[in-house]
């Protein structure tokens, strides 16, 4: 089974990369991009039967730094 983990910065945490991307989009002539927040997606190929609790622990212990980041798990079956 596969699972995708989406790691994003918490609200209120400054995202300099997102800001730079927004400026670059503006530079390319795209108007109306109010804000950009960049994150990452991590795809896990897991043994069948890996528990939700284990996937959650992987996120909390390593994949996300919960001081600054949120994570969301999407199971692909």
């Amino acid at each position: 089974m596969k699972a995708r983990v989406f790691v994003t910065l918490k609200n209120g945490v400054l995202d300099p990369q997102g800001k730079a991307i927004r400026h670059a989009l503006e530079g390319l002539g795209f108007a109306g991009v109010n804000d950009v927040r960049a994150g990452k997606m991590i795809e896990l190929d897991l043994a069948d039967g890996t528990s939700d609790a284990d996937i959650d622990a992987m996120c909390a212990k390593l994949l996300a730094n919960t001081v600054i980041e949120n994570y969301r798990i999407e199971k692909l079956g």
């Binding site: 945490v13 400054l14 300099p16 990369q17 730094n65 001081v67 600054i68």
Partner: peptide, 17 residues
Amino acid sequence: LTESGLLPGALMRNAGI
């Protein structure tokens, strides 16, 4: 040290990139 929890907080990308 912050990642290991020995110190609080986190070190993020420099504000000026």
